[in-house]
Amino acid sequence: MRILELDGAWNVRDLGGLPTESGGRTREGLVWRGDALHRLSSKDRDLLFGELGIRLVIDLRTQEEQLIHPPVDIPGVQTVNFSILPEGKIGREPFPVAFPSDLARVYVKNLTEGTAAVARTFEAIADEVAAGAGALFHCAAGRDRTGITAAILLDAVDVDRREIAADYVASNHHLSQVSKRLAENPIYHNDTHTAEDVPPLQAAAIESFLELVDMELGGSVNFLQSAGVPVEAIRKFTADFVLPAG
């Protein structure tokens, strides 16, 4: 896992180099997760879309969020929008809570509301990886929506869940900067919570989330299949993205 130190985004990192249960390791430089990209510097853009070869950006935010902070527009880079949350929900419901078990339940609700978006994200990333190109998916803070999407993707290719949890809590690396970024946008505020209330992430939240996915949705692979991703596509992505043991 490689965390990038950028000028205009605080939560961008590589999902490569993570060990799987079978002894393999995810390939580096292909699948990236992050936070909103609207303030990237020219140096950031040169790194992400030049040196690192990212050719697809998947924006998981709502249209409402994008009106305030528009998606990136980079020549030669495709940007698509697969919103996980329903329009009009952000800022009108309590900000995700700090208790891991409760947050895990919020995540499952987000996942089921955004089933199509998560499935389309998986398929789009799989297509880019098959072509040897890089893909980056992001929401606003790169923590919650991006976190559950990353967890499903990594779990589907059998990444060790301890490593999934480690990736998840890596979003605490620049927590203060991410919180300030959220505070700039009024739609993340409501009557009882503000963006400044963003608590540190705890591994137990994503661990509990994956346990609930197992119990209620039959696991990550079954969730993706039920959402319309063919099992052969999941197997091919695993073969493309995971370097075998040895």
Rank of each mutant, 00 (worst) to 15 (best):
M1E: 04
R2G: 02
L4A: 08
E5V: 09
V12G: 06
D14W: 01
E21I: 11
S22F: 03
V31Q: 11
W32S: 09
R33W: 12
D35G: 14
D35M: 09
G53W: 09
R55V: 09
L56K: 08
T62M: 03
I68V: 15
I68F: 13
I68N: 10
G76R: 11
T79L: 06
N81D: 01
L85H: 00
G88N: 14
F95S: 02
F95C: 06
P100R: 12
A104C: 07
R105G: 07
Y107V: 10
L111M: 13
L111A: 12
T112S: 04
R120I: 01
A124K: 05
D127L: 07
A131M: 06
A135P: 09
F137L: 05
H138I: 02
C139P: 09
A166V: 08
A170W: 04
S179A: 15
P186Q: 05
Y188H: 12
H189R: 15
H189I: 10
D191W: 05
H193L: 08
H193N: 13
H193R: 09
E196S: 05
E196G: 03
Q202D: 04
A204P: 04
S208T: 14
L210I: 06
E211H: 14
L212C: 01
G219D: 03
S220H: 02
Q225K: 03
G228L: 07
D240S: 10
L243K: 13
L243D: 15
A245S: 15
